[in-house]
């Protein structure tokens, strides 16, 4: 049995067989694993005595639940008004090219997660990008490439 599932079981042990526990359980599982894998949803369903599709329904409804694991580098491209007019779409396109994934996805090797956010709150530095907790301002395509030198090479080799 995988470590993930035993973690899920430990969490479930604290809850009774009640539908009402679903959201707290999902939150705890996400806190422990960083996301809610399908296997965990099956296990949660079994424990709570509800169909697994119901667990998926709830998990996919709330934006707070991630159904994919997070990448080690979580890239957030700001699409606020200021960033947008100063070229955020170009930046996003560049990043999609660099990482090989599209907005909202995580790369297969779990290296990158690419997201967009409405505003990071540093419009003066537009367009900006956040990687994990670090914010990079006044981005250009060149500066983006410089941020991810490895991926650029890897991507070109693969391409």
């Amino acid at each position: 049995m995988s470590g993930e599932l035993s973690l899920v079981r430990e969490i479930l042990a604290g809850y009774g067989k009640s539908r009402g526990a679903l959201i707290p359980v999902l939150q705890e599982v996400q806190a422990a694993l960083g996301y809610v894998p399908e296997g965990a949803m099956v296990e949660i369903a079994r424990h709570l005595g509800i169909p697994a599709s119901h667990v998926y329904s709830v998990a996919s409804f709330y934006a707070q639940f991630r159904l994919q694991p997070l990448g080690r580098r979580r890239i957030a491209v700001c699409r606020g008004t200021a960033c947008h007019v100063r070229g955020a779409p170009e930046i996003l396109k560049e990043l999609e090219g660099l990482t090989g994934i599209r907005e909202g996805e995580t790369s297969e090797d779990l290296e990158y997660t690419l997201e967009t956010v409405a505003c990071i709150g540093c419009c003066a530095l537009a367009p900006c990008v956040r990687v994990n907790d670090e914010v990079y301002g006044e981005m250009t395509r060149e500066k983006v490439r410089a941020l991810f030198p490895d991926s650029e090479e890897a991507h070109r080799d693969a391409g």
Binding site: P51, S53, H54, S57
Partner: peptide
């Protein structure tokens, strides 16, 4: 009583 289908997403 199978519950194979449900709404997904929002």
């Amino acid at each position: 009583g199978v519950g194979a289908l449900n709404f997904a997403g929002r």
